[in-house]
Write a protein that binds this DNA or RNA. Sequence first.
DNA 1: CTGAAAGCGCTTACAG
DNA 2: CTGAAAGCGCTTACAG
Lengths: 352, 352
Amino acid sequence: MVEKINLEPPAVIRNRPKIQDVARVAGVSTATVSRTLSKPEAVSKATRDMVLEAVQATGYRADHAARNLRRRRSGAIVVLVPNLGNPFFSQILAAIENTMSAAGYSVLIADTMQPQFRKQQILEHLHNNSADGMIVLDGSMAEEFLRSETAGIAASPVVFACEWTDKLRYPSVRIDNHSGAAMAVRHLIDLGHCKIGHIAGPAHNVLTTARREGFKAELKASGLKIRSEWDFDGDFSIEAGIQAAQSWFDLDNRPTAMFCASDEIAFGFISELNSRGIRVPDDVSVVGFDDIDIARHFIPPLTTIHQPRNDMGEMAARKLLANILGVASADQQDKLLLPVELIVRKSTAAPK
Amino acid sequence: MVEKINLEPPAVIRNRPKIQDVARVAGVSTATVSRTLSKPEAVSKATRDMVLEAVQATGYRADHAARNLRRRRSGAIVVLVPNLGNPFFSQILAAIENTMSAAGYSVLIADTMQPQFRKQQILEHLHNNSADGMIVLDGSMAEEFLRSETAGIAASPVVFACEWTDKLRYPSVRIDNHSGAAMAVRHLIDLGHCKIGHIAGPAHNVLTTARREGFKAELKASGLKIRSEWDFDGDFSIEAGIQAAQSWFDLDNRPTAMFCASDEIAFGFISELNSRGIRVPDDVSVVGFDDIDIARHFIPPLTTIHQPRNDMGEMAARKLLANILGVASADQQDKLLLPVELIVRKSTAAPK
DNA sequence: CTGAAAGCGCTTACAG
DNA sequence: CTGAAAGCGCTTACAG
């Protein structure tokens, strides 16, 4: 018995349907299918219904590569993070992702700290149309942007957040780090401390500079001594805090209070002192910076400067969107300063 | 004075050069330019040099949207994270990003926990060619995959990591959670504890189940009592630990040791007890799970189960790459179990 | 080793 | 409101 042979592949296992297939099934042109999907109101109800039905029947979804090529956009942005493993940054990233995805954009990540990371390469995303814009959380990338500008490459929508740069005219969203540091020091002075030290962030970092200057300015304003041996170099890590604790321990004349440029520094500092039998705040007071989630649950709960992480991420995303869409309005400042707040907890007390 | 008017736009501010421009400058066809860039060895040295020079001169970079459309790939993958703000996950993400970018892929993120997140929508990336594959760190997404499979949509390369599912045949990379939990409990038993409690992860989570079963199995193996009032429900957060501490505190007959399903739970538990004057490990011993960075610097430094975060991310990425490229070899197991390790620190001691 | 030509799957003025 | 047609910028058999 010879069965009728069907040379057409069965509809079910056919390849991904394309707009042509939908058009054929609906009995309209591809233009009409396309319109129905992107501008439904530009199409008659009858046609619309037929097309939508055909879309259902075929299981059609528009190919984004094709659409993007035609529309000259990628629908993605990239976020440049200094350190993904750091909860401070990953939470800002989360806020950015939330805002961007609500606006229909996807977010690509690039971690400056990864061994594979190549500074020179990251701007390619902007130049080869794989991203429509970029949010930069790493101020040290400024030079790369500068270089590409002088190379005559057209500027793309870029927003700096948390960290920033004065060398370039990109918009930024951040806090007033100088004031934040000053508030921290003011709190210590108000408690009665006059021997106040500092553990700094990484060298050549805008945040480090701003916070150190806020620290010094407040000391000076109160007529307190600024001693360079109480001003420890570091970076934003726990390890930097441990290092500083060792240095502090070895001092003949020890500060009774320390302002740390990050919460993680504070954790390392407190942890290391603790293992040497020095108690916080009984023996030393410690203030952090950032107010990451665990700060309130550390032992002792950490007095720190709160940064509005969520707002910062969201604002940066909004600013970038406005830039991409070209709807930057007058009420949008180019440099947005978000408020900081001193959170007093248990790691600070009056000196003995 | 009338100047000569040039109707051609000056070369410098011309739009992005395209492959045509390079071809014209080099005096070859676009096919040859394309080949020079993607398969240099398929082109004579003389031609290659001319083309490369023209690329330099024009500042050409290939448009990825166009290239991807033609090559039928996107060059991106998406990572589905349950909670970006959680350092455990963001560090795995960092490892994935590092491995993928080394292989020339970009990584898109999607955070299950964000209010904007739509489960039904996330698989679109795979269906509309905006991603070539996906790494899933959230086991609860399994049902969505199941649904799309039964909808007859062709399967794409997908790898589950950390969490997994037995309902689907996707490859996975993870640790042996059952054994990890058992090791933690064994450690407590070896210290002499016989009243051991548990603070669980979120309900309906594979990790929660596996760790709880490991906990119970080890108790049973040692002939110890399993008391349901010592087995607290929770999730992986600090808050869950705080809640559990309150419940623990109210107990008439308190366990002398607690196994926590995550380090964050342990932090919350210890922190809350501390504020009530209960000391760890003097009054209660506590074991965590994960060994996130801060665990060793908590006060007291946390005894916990170490997960190889970096390896897990890297392995998941490699597995996905092999899948995408279709080079999955025989030595690659479908289910990869990575080793765990008990890290004894200061949060555990013999009972009083 | 090289080029002419087709085509990836959409979108969008343009004309009717 | 709808369709025919051009085109987004590449890549890749195919022929020579």
